[in-house]
Simulated assay, not measured.
Amino acid sequence: MTTKGISFPLEVDATRRTLITSEDADLYRGHILSWLLTDKGERIMRPNYGMKDYLFSAVPDLGVILTEIREGLEENIPDCQFQLQGSINELGEVVVSVYWAWKGEDQNTLVVTLTP
């Protein structure tokens, strides 16, 4: 069975004048990117959707951030499995690698950078 939905980011097919859709793992990749690139509180109807802004947060351990991100992804995208790794680069940015699987198949790693 194919899972189909609207692609992320939103795009319009100029010839058909409809939103472009994606399916299966590509659809879930879009869901993951949407959650990672949305700040908590940004969506009025879903104030708890998205990633917490860590800019002015005192976090004692990078593991705390990784755990919060993984838990948020698992809660909002339950059809996928996640493992995260993170590091702090020379600019003080947290670089998070999201390893994910859909239906037991590993997918391409997604990398997000949290800037200070």
Rank of each mutant, 00 (worst) to 15 (best):
I32G: 00
C80P: 08
R17I: 06
E23G: 09
T15E: 15
P116K: 09
T115A: 10
Y99F: 04
I6N: 03
P60G: 15
I44L: 14
S87R: 15
T3N: 14
G63C: 01
I32T: 08
T67A: 12
G86Q: 04
D53Q: 07
Q107R: 09
Q81K: 13
V98D: 00
T109W: 00
Q107H: 03
G72E: 06
T115F: 10
Y54Q: 00
P78Q: 01
L114E: 13
D39R: 14
Y99V: 00
G5W: 00
E68Y: 04
K103H: 13
E23D: 09
N76S: 14
R46P: 02
W35S: 02
E42Y: 06
R29C: 12
S22M: 05
T3A: 10
E42M: 14
E68N: 09
Y28C: 01
L37C: 11
L114R: 05
D26T: 08
L36S: 03
L19H: 08
K52W: 10
S57A: 13
I88K: 13
R16I: 01
T115G: 05
E105R: 11
I20P: 01
Y28T: 01
W100A: 00
V98Q: 02
E11G: 05
D79L: 11
L55P: 00
I6E: 03
V64Q: 12
T113A: 12
E68V: 06
T3K: 13
G92R: 08
R46C: 05
E75L: 14
D61P: 01
V111R: 07
A14F: 11
L73C: 05
L19C: 08
L19Y: 11
I77M: 03
S34Q: 07
V112W: 05
V12R: 10
V59A: 07
N89K: 01
S97P: 00
V95C: 08
D79C: 03
P47Q: 09
T3H: 10
G5S: 06
P9K: 03
G72N: 07
M1P: 08
W100T: 01
F56N: 11
I69Q: 02
I88N: 07
E74I: 07
Y54K: 05
M1C: 07
Q83W: 00
E93C: 12
R17N: 10
A25H: 10
G63A: 15
K4M: 12
L73Q: 07
R43D: 05
L36Y: 04
E68A: 10
G41L: 07
N48Q: 13
Y49W: 14
L73Y: 00
D26R: 06
E11I: 02
L62H: 08
E75S: 14
T109P: 02
T21L: 11
P60L: 11
R16T: 09
I32M: 00
G50N: 04
K4L: 13
P60K: 14
P116N: 12
W35T: 02
G30V: 06
L91A: 15
A101G: 12
Y28H: 12
W100N: 00
F56M: 08
G72A: 08
N48S: 12
L37Q: 13
G5P: 02
G63E: 14
E42G: 12
M45Q: 07
E74Q: 15
A25D: 14
K40T: 13
E93I: 03
S34R: 12
L91K: 15
E90A: 15
V112F: 06
P116M: 03
